[in-house]
Design a protein around this nucleic acid. Structure first.
Ligand SMILES: NC(=O)c1ccc[n+]([C@@H]2O[C@H](COP(=O)([O-])OP(=O)(O)OC[C@H]3O[C@@H](n4cnc5c(N)ncnc54)[C@H](O)[C@@H]3O)[C@@H](O)[C@H]2O)c1
Ligand SMILES: NC(=O)c1ccc[n+]([C@@H]2O[C@H](COP(=O)([O-])OP(=O)(O)OC[C@H]3O[C@@H](n4cnc5c(N)ncnc54)[C@H](O)[C@@H]3O)[C@@H](O)[C@H]2O)c1
Lengths: 207, 207
DNA sequence: ATTAATATGTGAAATTAGTAACAAATTAAT
DNA sequence: ATTAATTTGTTACTAATTTCACATATTAAT
């Protein structure tokens, strides 16, 4: 059963555990985590079990230990550097976001073809794409956030990969065609909205 | 097998078909759509088949007919109005986005508690939350985009529901606890980034 | 006309994911 | 100490999703 679906759930557990810890809690139970994540208690226990994470019968799970175990999975030891490509609407939101540290990540540079965009001053430097390779090498970057218009997404993604990027978080609503070793995660806001509409529409449609 | 997973795929087909149509194509085949969407050809055929959409053996599918059929599913007849709650980083990107029309949607109002945010002028009016019910009634709104900070997300979501919202696209990294009839779709940017890191890390880790 | 090639459509098989049931451990209560 | 209550961990079962295999239709070529 390993992977994908399960990894997504482990991430959710981790987020929830961070919240619980923040609230001052020391331990938790599969049914409490279920409340926080929407995953059934059995499945939570099974997931933990399969990743070698063990609780105490009747005593539940120790939050700190759980987070330590999950840290080995997600919170890579070394802080991971990412770059942002495309400083438009979405890009501007992402560059101003301050939550990267919390996930042990750091945005080291932004790239945009528009020189005007490069005059705006943020806490992160904005370059032309020519500097990409240099930055990738200097900061050991392997992941990029891609927030360029749909029509240039494929071409830009290709350029990123040519210059050493092997993971892309893609906001453009297209399937990027890239070499097999490259990983892409897509975020498609309009599709999420549409599906919401669809499900609501379906349910409220008169029978 | 109906629903959820399948609906997601049908949405992807639709997006891809719109692109193909835009490129001037008239018909397509399950294997071409597979290229565009990453879904296997058999599964594409099966999905269509189960939704009563039929192609021509040897002749493939007619793009316009396909889109018509899918329109019945997704592109509700009437344009759907949505509101945005929280005009921060993400909110500002969403209010400036111009792709709603294409999905037959329309953003009719933005809400923010911060009076300073309400002085900024966009093509969409910005109100305080007190006006929510009024707008919901006037524009028959059932879906809201929630882009407020994590700590106020639950409370705000609750308020939205109290005032007639039944679908929420949630950007805050928390599981919203709401009455069963309310639908929530979550977009969690950091989780997507983390998972990218994880999968890359796993693969490049020395054996 | 006949044959070959190509694509769809679908029931069966295989795979993957999730649930139920319950034993084992641990803690709390008497 | 003994009993009861609770919660984990696991195996067996059920459900869901996807792929396989192939029959069937359609077009193109000879
Ligand atoms: N803004 C939203 O709310 C929203 C919603 C849904 C989807 N999207 C998608 O997200 C992507 C970005 O949207 P946006 O609204 O931020 O777009 P935008 O047009 O505001 O910004 C795009 C930016 O990318 C830059 N750019 C263009 N080509 C480039 C290239 N080759 N290399 C580097 N930079 C380049 C442009 O100069 C611009 O600054 C689009 O694909 C869009 O479809 C956005
Ligand atoms: N910006 C990003 O790139 C990013 C990335 C990942 C996740 N997120 C999440 O998205 C959400 C929004 O992020 P952001 O960066 O835009 O935050 P932000 O702080 O920039 O903006 C939040 C906005 O919500 C308004 N607000 C606060 N409470 C409100 C309430 N009760 N009702 C109405 N409006 C209210 C604030 O006035 C502000 O304008 C957060 O939950 C954040 O964790 C954002």
């Amino acid at each position: 059963m390993n992977n994908l679906v399960q990894i997504k759930r482990l991430q959710r557990y981790r987020m929830a555990l961070l919240r619980l810890k923040n609230m001052g809690l020391k331990k938790t139970f599969s049914h409490s985590l279920s409340e926080e994540t929407g995953v059934s208690p059995v499945l939570i226990r099974k997931d933990f079990s399969q990743f070698g994470i063990r609780g105490k019968r009747r005593g539940g799970y120790d939050i700190d230990s759980l987070l330590d175990e999950l840290k080995l999975l997600f919170g890579r030891e070394k802080e991971q550097n990412v770059v942002l490509v495309g400083l438009g609407n979405i890009g501007a939101a992402l560059v101003k976001y301050e939550g990267y540290r919390q996930s042990n990540m750091n945005m080291v540079a932004v790239f945009d073809i528009d020189p005007v965009k490069r005059t705006r001053r943020y806490s992160v430097p904005v370059y032309s794409l020519e500097s990409l390779r240099e930055v990738v090498n200097a900061f050991d970057v392997s992941v990029a956030i891609l927030a360029v218009p749909e029509f240039s997404a494929q071409e830009t993604a290709h350029y990123l990969v040519e210059n050493g990027i092997s993971g892309i978080l893609n906001f453009a609503p297209v399937l990027l065609k890239l070499p097999g070793h490259v990983l892409v995660n897509n975020i498609n806001i309009m599709i999420e909205l549409e599906r919401l509409m669809y499900h609501i529409g379906v349910r409220t449609k008169p029978i």
